Computed example of a mutant assay.
Amino acid sequence: MWTLVVNCGSSSLKFALLRPDTPDVPLAGLAERLGTDAASVRVDRAGERVTVPLPGGGYPEAFGVVLAELGALDLREQVGAVGHRVVHGGDLFSAPALLTPEVLDAVRACVPLAPLHNPANIAGIEAAQAAFGDVPHVAVFDTAFHQTMPEVAYRYAVPESWYRQHGVRRYGFHGTSHAYVAGEAARMLDRPLEDLNLVTAHLGNGASVCAVAGGRSADSSMGLTPLEGLVMGTRSGDVDPGLHDFIAREAGLSLTQVTAALNKESGLLGLSGLSNDMRELEEAAGRGHAGARLAVEVFVYRLAKTVAGMAVALGRLDGLVFTGGIGENSAAVRSATLERLGLLGFHLDAEANARAVRGQGGVITTPESLPALVVNTNEERMIARETAQLVARGL
């Protein structure tokens, strides 16, 4: 059975056709700028890449392109299930779920918790169900992996009524990635996952750190929303909650505008005044750009501090995993982070670290060191695996 994996953003649709038990990906692609005259679909198939213009097209039109491509490859009838990434499942879902009308209603109920993400996920699900109405659809939640966090980790010190009536608690995100790379790290270290206590760092435009104890999430740097935690591409990460009221009064902004600025104008972009792209910032810092240098240094400092804090959730630390676009490709960020974490027993192997870029993972520390690894994440394969397992159980 082939599984079509779908990941919808506010104006994008990422897709991949794969089977969990084989490395083959006969079709993959990305629809971008949906709903605008510049909309298009990039399609990767049979070793070639083509771009299909889709002016004004939305999710239904993008899925029309996917259907046409599947037909051209004679694979349309071999799609046995569709797996959807859903960002927020609240505390309603601790595992993937078959997308029944009731489950979709529950995803809608979580929109207030993820107003930037869940509406796009829902729109993509509805368009996909219209295009692929004859196969099961499964929701795989970013938050589900973190439902094993203990209450001491997920509760905020706020009025009890906020938690009971409004679900104000820490949920965590990037769960699919954290679960995948923890399993891969165990395989690379040749140790049973259930015997390992790892800190996994998913570092990209969105970034989070997770304490993984025996394959289960024990804590996460992200909270009620994906805004909490590390410095990210355009997200501030942790700030004083009093900032909202202060800057609203001082700058004459609404709370909605403050939140938007913390999500879209802050982080690496806000600190550097230049870019949210770590590659650009590293190059600019090398040329002496003060804002770029500060942004990189703050990113690394906050990352190292959070990793060290996550060790508290584990009691015993057996290794650190870097993943995501920055984690997999920035040797400089990894080096600077491990330098700050020397007190925990990490010692960088500079040559191994330099080699671990552009898809080349592996251990990047010396033999006597606590191991740090680079593991290439593959959320699509994890979603396909979980979707196929759920469908096979007939749930």
Rank of each mutant, 00 (worst) to 15 (best):
Y154P: 03
L196E: 02
H178Q: 08
P159M: 06
M149S: 06
P159V: 11
S161H: 13
E184H: 11
E184A: 05
G167A: 14
M149G: 04
T176K: 04
W162Y: 12
S161N: 10
Y171G: 01
Y154V: 01
L196F: 10
D190K: 15
V152Q: 05
A179Q: 01
L189G: 04
H178D: 07
V158R: 13
R170A: 01
A182W: 03
Y163Q: 15
H146W: 10
Y171P: 12
M149K: 08
T148L: 12
V181D: 01
H146S: 00
R164G: 06
M188E: 15
P192Q: 04
Y163T: 15
P192A: 04
T148C: 14
L196W: 09
P150T: 06
H146R: 09
R170M: 02
M188N: 13
G172H: 09
Q165G: 09
V152F: 07
G175Q: 04
Q165H: 14
F173T: 00
V168H: 14
V168F: 15
H174E: 05
E151G: 03
R164F: 07
T176D: 07
M149D: 04
V168T: 13
F145K: 00
A179D: 03
G175Y: 01
Y163H: 15
E160Y: 14
H174Q: 06
A185V: 11
P150G: 05
D195H: 13
P150D: 08
A185C: 09
P192C: 01
H166S: 12
Q165M: 13
Y156F: 11
A182R: 02
H146C: 05
R164H: 04
R164S: 02
Y171Q: 03
V168S: 14
Y156T: 07
H166D: 14
V152P: 01
R187Q: 10
Y156G: 02
R187D: 02
S161Y: 13
E184D: 02
E160I: 10
Q147M: 11
A186R: 08
L189V: 10
A186V: 09
E184C: 01
G172I: 06
R169A: 12
T148D: 07
D190G: 12
R155V: 05
S161W: 14
M188F: 11
R164K: 12
R164N: 04
Y180N: 04
P159H: 03
P192R: 11
H166E: 15
M149Q: 06
M188S: 13
M188Y: 12
H178C: 03
E151S: 04
H174G: 01
Y154F: 06
G167V: 15
R191W: 09
H174N: 09
W162P: 09
A179P: 00
E184I: 06
R170D: 02
P159A: 07
H178A: 00
R164Y: 09
Y171H: 07
Y163S: 15
Q147E: 10
P150H: 08
V181E: 03
P159I: 09
E160M: 12
Y163R: 15
R155N: 00
L196T: 07
